[in-house]
């Protein structure tokens, strides 16, 4: 068993048993970490795997949260029924905005995605359509009900959020280890070569974007249900920056995203005793961590393939020597 698998198992055990030892405060911090892990995992598909410079993930998070809030408070939809719809609405917004801009290069795409966060936030602030409640946001969102079990306590949310993280890890790991995940990596490495090999670059970029947005939308549902009150300021540019930094620091692997989410969300909590200087140290830590590990904490290892040993050396036209 290698080190990384061991670390994964240990982390799972710790997370499963944490509520037994931690107080409510730290459990709520870990709920928050779980939400950022979800956001990080979904952004990782876009930014880490496909290499699309996307710094506007909070926009889709916001769309999901607001969709949930509106469906729940205005139309009395249960939270879990609203969840797929929230994801779908976020995905639809992603299609609409990404379709015309997905071909933009690196930094041009970066500012456009930042612009999207700002446009969404301003639209929410200005109470677009009379549904979003302006700067007051929406309050009175109901607690979710899981087959008759009402999820109220922080510890319930803890298991809900981390359960969702676990499911996401399995799905995204599967995705990474498939032709789909490979195609995203080809695009990140060299999009011209990828297209030349037969990968439909635009459609893969777009679908990565939409998948990430769908997941962020569902994370938004969990956020809305946990907070019961949401305001536009919860989804500002700074949120996007944190999610972006979580993914870059992670190095692009799933375990890396988890560790990185703990560092980014947990660290400011540990720094609480520095009160005002907390964010100052946080900024400094961000710089130091990148200088310390420019490639990120845990870059993904190469995928493994079962290669049948067919006695190589047969029928080679070149003088390809032994490895």
């Amino acid at each position: 068993m290698n080190l990384r698998t061991l670390a994964g198992i240990l982390l799972t055990l710790c997370l499963a048993l944490l509520p037994l030892v931690a107080g409510p405060y730290w459990i709520s911090v870990c709920v928050n970490v779980g939400l950022y892990a979800l956001l990080g995992l979904s952004l990782n598909v876009i930014l880490g795997q496909a290499g699309i410079f996307h710094m506007g993930h909070a926009a889709f998070y916001a769309v999901g949260a607001y969709t949930t809030a509106i469906l729940n408070t205005l139309y009395q939809w249960p939270i879990f029924a609203a969840m797929p719809v929230a994801g779908a609405v976020a995905a639809l917004v992603a299609v609409a905005v990404a379709r015309p801009i997905i071909h933009l290069r690196g930094d041009y795409l970066l500012i456009v995605t930042i612009g999207i966060v700002e446009i969404v936030r301003i639209a929410l602030l200005n109470d677009v359509g009379g549904y979003t409640g302006g700067s007051n946001g929406i309050f009175g969102i109901a607690r979710p009900n899981f087959f008759g079990f009402k999820i109220v306590k922080t510890v319930h949310f803890y298991y809900l959020v981390w359960g969702m993280v676990a499911v996401s890890i399995l799905l995204f790991y599967g995705l990474w280890r498939s032709r789909y995940g490979r195609a995203l990596n080809y695009i990140k490495e060299d999009d011209v070569a990828a297209e030349g090999c037969g990968v439909h670059v635009t459609s893969y970029k777009l679908s990565a974007f939409v998948l990430g947005a769908f997941w962020a939308g569902m994370a938004g549902t969990l956020y809305a249900a946990q907070m019961t009150t949401i305001t536009p300021e919860s989804f500002n540019f700074m949120e996007s920056v944190i999610i972006f930094a979580v993914v870059i620091l992670s190095g692009g692997s799933i375990l890396g995203v988890l560790v990185s989410a703990f560092l980014f969300i947990g660290l400011p909590e540990l720094l609480r005793e520095f009160s005002n200087a907390r964010m100052l140290i946080f900024g400094l830590a961000m710089m130091l961590m990148m200088i310390w590990r420019p490639q990120g904490l845990l870059p993904p290892r190469p995928r493994r393939y079962h290669v049948a040993d067919s006695g190589s050396g047969a029928g080679g036209a070149s003088a390809g020597g032994a490895a």
């Binding site: 290669v307 190589s312 047969a314 029928g315 080679g316 036209a317 070149s318 490895a323």
Partner: peptide, 9 residues
């Protein structure tokens, strides 16, 4: 195998 790079896979 055909191009002689199987050993480098």
């Amino acid at each position: 195998e055909f191009v002689g790079l199987a050993g480098h896979h």
